[in-house]
Amino acid sequence: MRPARALIDLQALRHNYRLARELTGARALAVLKADAYGHGAVRCAQALEGEADGFAVACIEEALELRAAGINAPILLLEGFFEASELALIAEHDFWCSIHAEWQLQAFESASLPRPVDVWLKLDSGMHRVGFAPAEYADAHRRLLASGKVANLVMMSHFSSADELDNPRSAQQVETFERACKGLAGTVSLRNSPAVLGWPQVPGDWVRPGIMLYGATPFEVAQPEAERLQPVMTLESKVISVRELAVGEPIGYGGGFICTRPTRVGVVAMGYADGYPRTAPSGTPVFIDGQPSQLIGRVSMDMLTVDLTDVPSAGLGSTVELWGRNVAVNDVAIAAGTIAYQVLCNVRRAPLHYINS
């Protein structure tokens, strides 16, 4: 079989979830949207069930997959419902539901539900993506409680810039949230991964760790709590061919890399169809048989090339770590001009292998 694979360390996942709880003392919803950021939502939920306070997904399809797999813990639909007809399923499966728009609120008020639903009412505190405006929030809160269809109500918002530790925007959003929610009954959820790690002064009863669960820092600078995260995914493959090239020889599509010295080139069974970013340039770090090296040449659909020159013991069959314990996924993402969130979510053809389950 093709040797490309992604190892998913479920003990590291549990460690990162426990860190979120330790840092905040709050209840924590483990965010499993987008197939757990490429890590496999069902297996990640199974690894956390029994200690997680609940889970969060983007949409009802993701939530139904977890229920079908036997996950009975609370599951929050972060984007709520997209059609009013989903409300029957939300009540049937006891999902928690975000409401962030007037049309959703009207549909909820009009719905005939067999039982009350836990609602997370979203405030637009300044990100200006979804959520009720501050001037509308108290009335939306009143209408929900008046409907008689709410079991528990959580007041929530989302930070736009919490990954920028010196940006005053987050403090401004907290102030906006506190003004809008003053005197309103319910618990509070504000903190996402960067706020869990870097904003201890932000209040809240619930936190929503996402990217930090998977061991990637949300920050572009060093941050002491983020240093405690453990990477969950190791993307690896093997060298399937070795070339000896002279000075001046090009490598790969477009010949963008030209050898400046006699070069041993390892061809690796890994490409952008597996989720490795095509935009990763020559010089992007890799580890070969536990030793540091680098990418050389353009990433192809199914293959990429690495420099074996300074790893003389490496050759055919050598293991190449693209990211994981030795190569931070953030470093690969930065080199490729993107973010770790996208890099992890893009992992596809490489099969997932679970360890420490």
Rank of each mutant, 00 (worst) to 15 (best):
E102V: 10
E227H: 12
F219I: 04
V343N: 09
V265D: 06
F159Q: 03
V329S: 06
G70M: 14
S98L: 02
L19T: 03
H353N: 04
A26Q: 05
T187K: 13
Q173M: 15
P292C: 15
D302C: 01
R67P: 08
Y341C: 10
E175Q: 15
V202H: 02
S157D: 12
I90N: 00
D35Q: 09
R179M: 10
D53E: 14
R278V: 14
M303T: 15
L66K: 04
S282M: 08
A69T: 11
G126P: 09
A20F: 04
V150S: 08
Y341N: 12
A146W: 04
A58F: 10
I355N: 00
E136W: 01
P218G: 10
L10S: 06
A26T: 01
A328G: 04
A68P: 00
S160K: 07
L10A: 11
G255P: 12
R2F: 08
E65W: 07
Y354M: 10
H128S: 11
A222H: 15
T305L: 00
C181D: 01
P351K: 11
D307I: 11
R191M: 14
D9I: 09
V265P: 05
T279E: 14
Y137E: 03
I258Y: 04
S241Q: 15
V207H: 05
V150T: 12
G25V: 08
P262N: 13
V347Q: 14
Y253K: 07
P116N: 08
F177N: 06
I296H: 03
V130I: 15
V239L: 05
L245W: 06
G25L: 03
R191N: 06
E136Y: 04
L121N: 01
P134H: 13
A269L: 11
P168L: 04
E175H: 12
E109Q: 14
A45Y: 06
G248F: 14
D331K: 12
F82D: 04
Y341T: 15
Y137G: 03
V221E: 15
N330V: 12
G215L: 04
A222Y: 13
N356A: 14
L295C: 09
G131E: 03
V202Y: 05
V299G: 04
P168N: 13
Q201C: 01
V196W: 02
H128T: 01
P285D: 12
L19Y: 04
P3Y: 10
G70S: 12
T234R: 14
V327Q: 08
L121F: 02
A91P: 03
N16A: 09
P218M: 08
A84S: 12
P351E: 10
A133F: 11
V174T: 09
F219A: 01
V332Q: 11
H93D: 00
G38N: 06
I90A: 11
P116C: 07
Q223T: 07
A246C: 00
M301I: 02
L105M: 06
S110D: 14
H158S: 00
V174M: 07
Y253C: 00
H39T: 09
M303E: 13
P231I: 10
W103Q: 14
P134R: 09
V130A: 06
A73K: 06
D289Y: 03
E244S: 14
H158L: 02
I71W: 02
G290N: 11
L235E: 03
V329T: 13
I296Q: 05
R298E: 15
F219K: 06
V347C: 03
A246P: 00
Q106N: 05
C345L: 08
D310K: 07
E86W: 01
R143M: 13
K149R: 10
E164M: 11
Q11V: 00
R5D: 05
